[in-house]
């Protein structure tokens, strides 16, 4: 067989290796830059640092409010992911298992919201949050985030719940368990895998999100990490404090790398399946 011969495999490897370098080199170099002094970045921007110093991290942490924005990002991420689950699990169960009029319609409504550009809604949402006193408020942002990921979560959870055998619920109902009990004690534990997948995807989404935070948060004390980094980046044009900027980028990316290292397969599965809704 010609396929997979040594020669053709070697030729194919060249673009693969080049692309790997194109992905990894900028990321490695960003991490290295975080440990370099500014003078070193100017003298030798793409080389190895002469000595590793944590000065940039200290500077970012204490002089650029990265500490409070990391805290805000954790709150928004955790609260957003919890709220999404609280809303999505009962709805997914009802949509997947119960017959009622308008079931298909409601499901279609949620799913089609994944394809609608939300930019249009952000202007009225801005004023709605203002009226509710939730503008420039990380709890308000958490609610907005949670609802923005609701369609995706319902989509994944319903397809997951469809694989749970119906006989378990029927047996529990015959034993006199209430539907609330069935949802909480049978369906939720059996959907753990789906719930974890959805939660990781949502957490990465909320941790990374930038544009809604830009619109709905205003004071620096409420900035999430993405906004704080963008702020430092804009400052860098004048201060040229590249090292500090890289340090803050590294802080932003570490939780994502950790999640990816642990849940690589789940994340990949969640994202490819989320895209195949079309």
């Amino acid at each position: 067989m010609k396929k997979g011969s040594f020669f053709s495999r070697s030729i194919v490897r060249i673009p693969l290796i080049i692309w790997s370098l194109a992905v990894l080199y900028p990321i490695f170099w960003m991490v290295l830059g975080a440990f370099k002094s500014n003078a070193e970045i100017y003298a030798n921007p793409w080389g190895l640092p002469e000595s590793f110093s944590f000065g940039n991290f200290v500077d970012a942490w204490s002089n650029y409010n990265i500490d409070s924005s990391v805290f805000n990002s954790f709150i928004v991420t955790g609260l957003g992911a919890t709220l999404t689950l609280a809303m999505a699990i009962p709805t997914s169960y009802a949509l997947e298992r119960m017959r009622f009029r308008g079931n298909r319609l409601l499901f279609t409504l949620y799913i089609s919201a994944m394809m609608i550009p939300m930019v249009l809604g952000w202007i009225p949402l801005f004023f709605l949050l203002m009226q509710l006193n939730l503008l420039d408020n990380i709890f308000g942002l958490s609610i907005v985030y949670a609802i923005s990921q609701l369609p995706f979560s319902i989509f994944v959870l319903t397809s997951f719940m469809a694989t749970i055998p119906k006989s378990l619920e029927e047996a529990a109902a015959i034993d006199g368990m209430s539907p609330y009990g069935i949802l909480w004690k049978i369906i939720t534990p059996l959907s753990t895998t789906g719930i974890i997948t959805v939660t990781i995807m949502n957490m990465i989404q909320f941790w990374n999100e930038y544009f809604m935070a830009l619109i709905f948060l205003q004071s620096e004390g409420n900035y999430t990490l993405a906004l704080a980094i963008d702020y430092i980046s804009n400052e860098t044009q004048y201060t040229n404090a590249w090292g500090t900027l890289f340090a803050s980028l590294v802080i932003a990316i570490i939780p994502v790398i950790v999640l990816y290292a642990i849940f690589q397969r789940r994340i990949v599965k969640g994202m490819t399946e989320g895209a195949i809704k079309g």
């Binding site: 396929k3 495999r9 790997s20 992905v23 990894l24 990374n208 980094i229 980028l249 994202m271």
Partner: peptide
């Protein structure tokens, strides 16, 4: 199709930028 031994490595590496924040990607490329 090519029976490349280190294929899982490429999969993991190529996918990683998909979960990076647009802010991080944008600043890196700036």
């Amino acid at each position: 199709q090519m029976k490349i031994k280190e294929a899982p490595f490429y999969r993991i590496v190529f996918f990683f930028p998909n979960i990076m924040s647009v802010v991080v990607i944008g600043i890196l490329w700036m």
